[in-house]
Computed example of a mutant assay.
Amino acid sequence: MSRAVCPGSFDPVTHGHLDIIARASALFDEVIVAVGVNPSKRRLFEAEERLDMLGRACAGWRNVRVEGFTGLVTEFCANQGARAIVKGLRASSDFDYELPMAQMNFALTGVETVFLPTSTGQSFVSSSLVKEVAAFGGDVREFVPDFVHERLLARLAER
């Protein structure tokens, strides 16, 4: 069985993330969406909230499951029996950032990294940009699932 890990913070999950997850689910028997849990980093949504939103967003794929992890993604891959990490690339700058990590991950554990280019309509979308635009009152509804949009607006209203 081929198993891959699709790691990220997903703060919040966007349609760009879901595009990569959907395409990875067509390539691998099982995809584990690994939500990074790092208590030292400030996120808009707590780990449990991100896990919940991703679980709901990924419910339509039978071969996708959502898990939280701390530490190195390669350790998580080893614990899960995953031989590949799937990363989405929006632009060449993403590749420049991700390539050294992919090479280190392979050198440490032999885990391969598979890069998938984002779909054209999602190439500019990032969680950070979605949060920033929404914080200034911009309409980001087309970039996130409806239930994520509602939670995003509610969280920003709390601040």
Rank of each mutant, 00 (worst) to 15 (best):
P7Y: 09
G8Y: 06
G8E: 06
S9R: 12
D11P: 10
P12V: 09
P12T: 09
V13G: 04
G16E: 00
H17N: 08
H17R: 08
D19F: 08
I20G: 03
I20H: 03
I21F: 09
I21L: 10
A22K: 15
R23T: 10
A24L: 07
A24V: 09
S25D: 06
S25G: 07
L27N: 04
D29F: 04
V31C: 04
I32V: 15
I32R: 03
V33S: 03
V33Q: 02
V33Y: 00
V33E: 01
V33C: 05
V35T: 11
G36A: 14
V37K: 13
P39E: 05
P39K: 07
P39I: 10
R42H: 12
R42D: 12
R43N: 15
R43Q: 14
A47T: 14
A47H: 13
E49R: 14
R50F: 10
L51C: 11
L51Y: 09
D52I: 00
D52Q: 14
M53R: 03
L54T: 05
L54G: 02
G55D: 01
G60H: 04
N63H: 01
V64C: 05
V64I: 09
R65E: 08
V66S: 05
T70R: 15
G71D: 03
L72N: 02
V73L: 07
V73P: 01
E75Y: 03
E75L: 12
F76P: 05
F76W: 05
F76N: 02
C77Y: 00
N79P: 00
N79Q: 15
Q80C: 15
Q80P: 06
G81W: 06
I85D: 01
L89A: 07
R90E: 02
R90A: 05
R90W: 03
A91M: 10
S92K: 12
S92W: 13
S93M: 12
S93N: 11
D94G: 09
F95P: 08
F95E: 06
E98A: 12
E98F: 11
E98C: 12
L99N: 11
P100N: 03
M104C: 07
N105F: 02
F106Y: 15
